[in-house]
Design a protein around this nucleic acid. Sequence first.
DNA 1: TGTACATCAGTGAACGCGCGTTCACTGATGTAC
DNA 2: TGTACATCAGTGAACGCGCGTTCACTGATGTAC
Lengths: 207, 207
Amino acid sequence: MARRSYHHGNLKQTLIEATLDLVEERGPQAFTLAEAAKRAKVSVAAPYRHFRSKQDLFVEIARQGFEMFADLMEYAFESANASPLAAFEATGHAYLAFARRYPGHYILMFESGVPLNATPGLAHEAQRAKAVVQRAAERLVVGIPEDSRPPPTMVSDHIWAFSHGVVELFARNPDGTRTLFSAEDLLETGMGVYLRGLGLLEMDTRK
Amino acid sequence: MARRSYHHGNLKQTLIEATLDLVEERGPQAFTLAEAAKRAKVSVAAPYRHFRSKQDLFVEIARQGFEMFADLMEYAFESANASPLAAFEATGHAYLAFARRYPGHYILMFESGVPLNATPGLAHEAQRAKAVVQRAAERLVVGIPEDSRPPPTMVSDHIWAFSHGVVELFARNPDGTRTLFSAEDLLETGMGVYLRGLGLLEMDTRK
DNA sequence: TGTACATCAGTGAACGCGCGTTCACTGATGTAC
DNA sequence: TGTACATCAGTGAACGCGCGTTCACTGATGTAC
């Protein structure tokens, strides 16, 4: 902790954390490298020893974010593996949980304008995350009679879109807009209705 | 058309259109007033005769956007008024249709960082749009047995979130991400499953 | 264990430019009489 | 119908600043011998 030396030691990680803080506080547009450097107590030139550009910094954080995201989703998926239904629901919850726990990452991943294919590494991790939901959807639809079974990628797209919409509109309260229901409630109930619509939950077990 | 005079005539509207074009092309972050002025063939100072600031311009366009949005939703709602089910579905479709037809407005309304309560006028129009979906949800849930009837605002929040997620993730294809299903398909099918889950569509009339 | 030296990770100052905004101005328009 | 004048909607130039980025530099670290 008591680091007084000329060399910082772990500036790269410190810069990433400062960036996450600033992005959470003021949004990705208002973020400046100079301020991140200031928070890390180094000169404005120092970040360039670790990142080629501001964009490069953003891409790296987004990549790490998708890496954690995919890991979290996989873990949620595996843990509830006994039941395809539970596993599917778990990925939805993991989506929101990630957005809650890592808001800075989430913002850089989905709201900063960083294209998801900016880098092979980034594209790969983003794809990996999406693949988990797809796998969960594949196992889920097996429980549906074949003649009325929807394509699994359609189901995963539905849940991905719904989760994203819930996070964007209800997980942060940017305006004074007070909502009656928490994002968690909305995700839970919405998925419940959806799963009943797929015929995978009893119609009368409404909570 | 042949306007050669010193005075522009309808610069305000021309600036708004130039702004919409630029925002669609490059996103709200890359937009500059100077470039909008250039497209409108006036000096960089001219916009300030019509808007107090760049932010003011954004807010005004977002307000107009929500005004059109609310009108469109109301029209869709009224037109399909015979059946609560059709009316409800129509608001969902109107959401996506608006995003398609007025992408610049949509971006400024939802992705530019303009707070929805930046101005009383803006807040009012945004509220009006939301209210239409809520009214549609109110009429819809009347068809559900009282003991298993969800709160209408919850239903409207679900559909608002789902529509928004579909637009954000599938209506534009920013990355090379080619999707199997169009945004329209995803919205249609997702709403279908959801409505079946509410018990408002027959389970076997899957399309 | 000590010394020479390459390499690494910082500094401080400056650059250049773009962008939002302002200011004194001027040409065009509309209205009173 | 013509003229004087207020008002409106532009211009052109400049400002100021913030921000990303670069450059020559220097202190610290690690390694070969």
